[in-house]
Structures are given as C-alpha cells and as structure tokens.
C-alpha cells in the first residue's frame, strides 16, 4: 500500500531541494488534491456478518413451524387481548398521571425550607424505592387484614365522618392504580427534583429582579427550563410503567399479559400468545418513543447545539400544522442531528 501511494503521489518527496519555487508549486499541487477518506474495513466486515445473522434469524422465525404464526394471527385482535390492552393503557396513563402530580408535590417538599416536610418526603422515598413494587401491590391488596375499615374522621380514634370497609373502598382497580402510582411517584419525585435543581440560580434572580413573584418565576421561567431535563427520564418511566403494570396480574387484574396468560393456561399455546403480547407492548412503546422525541425537541428549544433555534410554539403534537409539514419535521430529525 505504502509504495503504491508513493508512486501515485511523487510530489510528496521534493526531488530537488535547490529549485525552491518549483518545489513550492509542487507542494501546492499536492495539497490541492482530492482527499480519500479512510476505509473502515473492520466495520464493513462486522456489518456484513451481522446482516447475515439477522437474515438467518428472520428466515428461521418465518419458516419454523413451532412459532405457530397462524395462531399468533388468530389471537392478535382477539377480544380478550384487546380488552387487556385497553386495561394496560388505562393503568399506565392514570397511574402515571397520579405519580407525576404526587412526584411534583414530593419534590416541592424535598426542596422546601421546612425540615418536617423534607423528612416526611425523604421517608416516603426511602420506603417506596426501597421495597419491590410486587410487595407493595400485595400489601395494598391485603390492607383489610391490617385496617378493616378506612375513613376520614377525627384523628386518634375520634368519630368517623365518611368511610367504609377497606375492601369496599379499595377496589381491584383502586389497588392497582394507587399501588403503581405510589411506587412511581417516588421515582418521579427524584426526577422532578433533579430537573428543578438543574436550572441555574441566576435564572431565579433574573426573574426576581424583573419584579416577578415566586409563582410567576416558577411557572414561566424555572419550570419550562427544568422540563428539558425532566422530560427524557419521564418518557423512560412511562415506557417502563407500560411494562411494570403487568405486575398487577398478581392481584388478578386482567391486563394485557394476564389476559394472555388466562388463555394459554387453558390452550397451552404459550409461545404464540406471548408473541402477541410482545407485539402490542412493542407497538405501544414505539409510539411513546416518537412522542417522547417530539416533546424533547419542544422543550430543548433555545439550547445551543440543539436543532431548533427558531421559535416553535405549540407544536408538541404537530397540531395545527399541515400534515406535510409534520412529516418533514419527523424525517428531518436524523439529518439535522448530524
């Protein structure tokens, strides 16, 4: 290789040191030439190898009779599966919403100047992050064993104002939603706290110097900047919640996974049904990922190095923007990142 290059570019070695001017022009000629990018042969080999492996895998999956593709197709839009998918989505959306609200309150407590609020929030986080979600769900499900009645009334054994037996207050759905939300709120609290702390103190001062009160400064200046940090991990948590919500099968709430389990325990078509379930989980997480990217882009506006340096108000969901426009924004993500 080396010798071949030397032959094609003889100007590299000045043949005559005395003729300075001709050597200079020769150098200039050399430097003005086209550059040849370095070839990464190792990468090419690895890519070809991986392509072969993937092709083989796909081929085997399609041709292997044990996957029972006709059965998969049969159950893909099966009413019980659809109902389970609906329950999983409701569980995810409702418990996540509750967790975000609770998480913001907990973060506010942790950041407040009051020691009692800090300690209570700290203890809450310690418990709900320190024990498995599975145990928390079963605990909540069996709460009637500890407290047969739940209600609101005068504390320390005073008369009850409203209430009922624990099992009537805590329905299956309530246990599932509250259980998931309590656990998740502990994680959300830390995410929110981290986001709020990421905004420089100078921003609060600048807002204050302009005469903004605390609420105004928080809502208009601090929170929008904190969201840039809060949104990406929250997206991960939503995607995580979609899958962790399958733990409610321990309290026999027929979510997506449990609905499939109920079918295959009778028909023994375990693999095809798990493929069906995986398909729906993957579809949902893919859609969520697209939304996550868009929201991240919205809240990243104005940050150096970020693609959007032009104003983009109210375009989180591409609402009010012609469809063609939306498509270009979507497809241009990769191009603009380079």
């Amino acid at each position: 290789m080396e010798s071949a290059k030397a032959k094609t570019h003889p100007q590299h070695t000045p043949s005559n040191a005395l003729s300075a001017t001709s050597a200079l022009t020769a150098d200039q000629q050399t430097l003005a030439r086209e550059t040849v990018p370095l070839r990464h042969h190792g990468r090419t080999v690895a890519a070809v190898f991986l392509l072969l492996v993937v092709a083989n895998l796909v081929h085997s999956m399609v041709t292997n009779q044990n996957f029972q593709w006709p059965t998969v197709w049969h159950y893909l839009f099966f009413p019980d599966i659809m109902a389970g998918l609906g329950r999983t989505l409701i569980l995810t959306v409702v418990s996540m919403t509750m967790a975000i609200v609770l998480g913001i309150l907990l973060a506010a407590c942790r950041l407040s100047g009051n020691k009692v609020l800090q300690a209570v929030a700290g203890a809450y986080l310690w418990f709900f992050r320190g024990t498995p979600l599975l145990i928390q769900l079963i605990f909540l499900y069996n709460l009637s064993a500890l407290y047969p009645r739940l209600g609101i009334g005068v504390p320390f054994g005073g008369p009850e104002l409203i209430g009922g037996s624990t099992n009537s207050v805590l329905s299956l759905w309530t246990v599932a939603l509250v259980g998931l939300a309590l656990h998740e709120s502990a994680y959300m609290a830390e995410i929110v706290r981290g986001g709020l702390l990421s905004v420089p103190k100078h921003q609060t001062e600048a807002a204050a110097a302009l005469g903004m009160n605390n609420l105004m400064a928080f809502r208009r200046i601090i929170l929008p900047q904190a969201l840039r940090v809060i949104v990406p991990p929250t997206g991960n948590q939503v995607i995580g919640m979609l899958k962790y919500s399958s733990l409610v099968s321990v309290i026999a709430l027929p979510d997506l996974l449990y609905s499939a389990q109920m079918i295959y325990t009778q028909t023994f078509e375990t693999i095809p049904l798990l493929i069906v379930v995986s398909f729906w989980y993957l579809l949902c997480t893919s859609i969520l990922t697209v939304f996550q990217q868009r929201i991240e882009r919205y809240y990243g506006r104005g940050v150096a190095g970020h693609q959007s340096t032009t104003p983009a108000r109210g375009r989180i969901l591409g609402l009010g923007v012609p469809r063609k426009r939306v498509r270009t924004t979507l497809s241009s993500t990769t191009a603009e990142e380079g």
């Binding site: 100078h202 921003q203 600048a206 807002a207 110097a209 200046i221 900047q225 506006r301 104005g302």
Partner: peptide, 12 residues
Amino acid sequence: GMVFQSFNLFPH
C-alpha cells in the same frame, strides 16, 4: 432594573 455579569437571559 438590573443587569447581571452573566447576562441571565431566559434561554427558552
């Protein structure tokens, strides 16, 4: 009105 050393414009 106050002008700071580090400008402190609102980046968003």
